[in-house]
Design a protein around this nucleic acid. Structure first.
Length: 462
RNA sequence: GCGCCGGUGCCCGAGCGGCCCAAGGGAACGGCCUGCAAAGCCGUACAGUCGCGGGUUCAAAUCCCGCCCGGCGCUCCA
């Protein structure tokens, strides 16, 4: 039984999908106008892990993640740089996709762009106007928020509670009937891209795109809608309002990942305290996996403090897992031919079925690592099963251990290192430990660590 | 102000009323292994008050109330 924490009901509920055995998932993606930062990585990884696990567990998953390629931030940057908004969007979309790939994020089954769905949005807005839940003014088209029943349910606030905050921090458009009402369509302004519409040239509001794309691709009553918890209000609240106002069944369940903190503060653009994913990956090629491990070891709904120490800790964990596989391989353990440990796999599934309990799931993986190490040392046959299980379960969460991780691509001196290691082995055989240690120090200076095993030395870049 | 979330060992972090004298990772210490290391395994100290104070219960880190501290949202934001 798969249970998740549903934001709307605010409790743990069993996920009963629209179609048996099949889960449709819509995860809100980024607005592309700058380098993706670690928060984007957490968001993407949260749903990547969910999708991978569900598929591993035998569900058919339809994963949709959009790209918002038209909005104020994009237009502002385009005007600032004197280029077209399309150019900005395309440039940063490419960067985003590349970074996601480097992070080991599986491409979603569909990756729609807002600008590809303008027709659908216009049609949707027309419906809302026909139903009299939206109205046209000189500045655009607005949704009549108070006409939507349960508008604030997702944030667990009443409309009046929300009204208290509305307009206190943002200038209210005078033409709106109510400060809570929000734009479905924005009338054309100078220096902005526009599309034709029944209400004159303009561009879509922020929230309408996700409704058009999610319902357009996954259909009514799709299963799971996710995103960062900063989207609960207003973005998801407004998406939901639009769908309700149109009389459409929207997502059955909502899940939201927590933010990332840096130095005890929320990481955000405005605070200028963010780290780009690119910088992190450039720092150390192992960081893609280290970041994934760090994320997995904290529950997705809990704020994660991210800093260099956390990543260092995670890298040590990755090294530990890799070392086990190296040792098993050196010892000739037949991992591929081994069975999965059924008990461990079951505990793992239990942990994951409980609102994606990745910290507990990783604890199970590490237990297998320890078991494997012990069995390898003792020459026991269960080494293969434990190693296989660790690799398989970590892999189910997108974490590759051992094997070719591609992290040392570009290092061309393998042969040279091999020969130095062989020299050291020869020196050791002659009990010329001075020479052996000198070679070991030399290699260490180059970042290469030698590990002696009963089956001969192995080495790694540390 | 209104609302939400969190405070668990040296650090990070599980924990969903009994299986918790509290997982897992990192760091530390001791032992085994090693020519010495590294890696690994075993063991140990760390949480004798799970922020503090009450309460509910046969039973609470886990539920309720109050308080303190921190973070976040109410604004573009993953």
């Amino acid at each position: 039984m798969l249970r998740i924490h549903d934001t709307l009901r605010d409790e743990l509920v069993e996920l009963i999908p629209r179609v048996d055995g099949e889960i449709s998932l819509y995860a809100c993606g980024p607005t592309v106008y700058d380098h993706p930062h670690l928060g984007h990585a957490r968001q993407a990884m949260t749903y990547d892990v969910a999708r991978r696990y569900l598929e591993w567990a035998g569900w058919r998953v339809h994963h949709v993640a959009n790209i918002t390629d038209i909005d104020d931030n994009i237009i502002n940057r385009a005007n600032r740089e004197g280029v077209s908004d399309t150019e900005i969007a395309e440039t940063w979309t490419a960067v985003y996709l590349e970074v996601m790939d480097d992070l080991g994020i599986l491409p979603p089954h569909d990756r729609p762009k807002a600008t590809e769905y303008v027709d659908e949005m216009i049609e949707f807005i027309s419906t809302l106007i026909e139903r009299d839940t939206a109205y046209v003014t000189d500045s655009g088209v607005y949704l009549r928020v108070r006409s939507v029943e349960g508008y604030g349910d997702l944030v667990h606030r009443t409309v009046d509670e929300l009204a208290e905050g509305a307009g206190t921090r943002v200038e209210v458009d005078e033409t709106k009937e109510d400060p809570l009402d929000f734009a479905l369509w924005k009338a054309a302004k100078p220096n902005e891209p526009t599309w034709d519409s029944p209400w004159g040239p303009g561009r879509p509001g922020w929230h309408i795109e996700c409704v058009a794309m999610s319902l357009g691709i996954l259909g009514d009553d799709f299963d799971l809608h996710g995103g960062g918890n900063d989207l609960v209000f207003p973005h998801h609240t407004n998406e939901r309002a639009e769908a309700i106002a149109a009389g459409r069944s929207f997502s059955r369940y909502w899940m939201h990942n927590a933010m990332l903190n840096i130095d005890g503060e929320k990481m955000s653009k405005s605070l200028q305290n963010y780290t780009t994913v690119r910088d992190l990956l450039d720092e150390d090629p192992r960081n893609a996996r280290a970041l994934r491990l760090a994320l997995l070891q904290t529950h997705y709904r809990k704020i994660l403090e991210i800093n260099p120490e956390i990543l260092e800790t995670a890298r040590a964990g990755i090294d530990r897992m890799d070392a086990m596989v190296r040792k098993a391989t050196a010892a000739g353990v037949d991992i591929d031919g081994a069975e999965l440990d059924a008990d461990a796999a079951e505990s793992f599934s239990e942990a994951m079925d409980h609102d994606f309990g990745t910290p507990e799931a990783m604890a199970i993986v590490f237990e297998q690592v320890r078991r494997a190490n012990g069995a390898i040392d003792a020459g026991e046959p269960e080494a293969a099963v434990a190693a296989k299980t660790a690799i398989e379960l970590a892999g189910a969460l997108g974490l590759t251990i051992g094997g070719d991780t591609g992290e040392n691509d570009g290092a061309e001196d393998d042969a040279e290192i091999d020969s130095l290691v062989a020299e050291r082995t020869a020196a050791k055989a002659d009990r010329d430990f001075a020479t052996a240690d000198r070679i070991r120090d030399e290699l260490a200076a180059r970042g290469v660590v030698i590990e002696d095993t009963p089956h001969g030395p192995i080495w790694r870049r540390g």
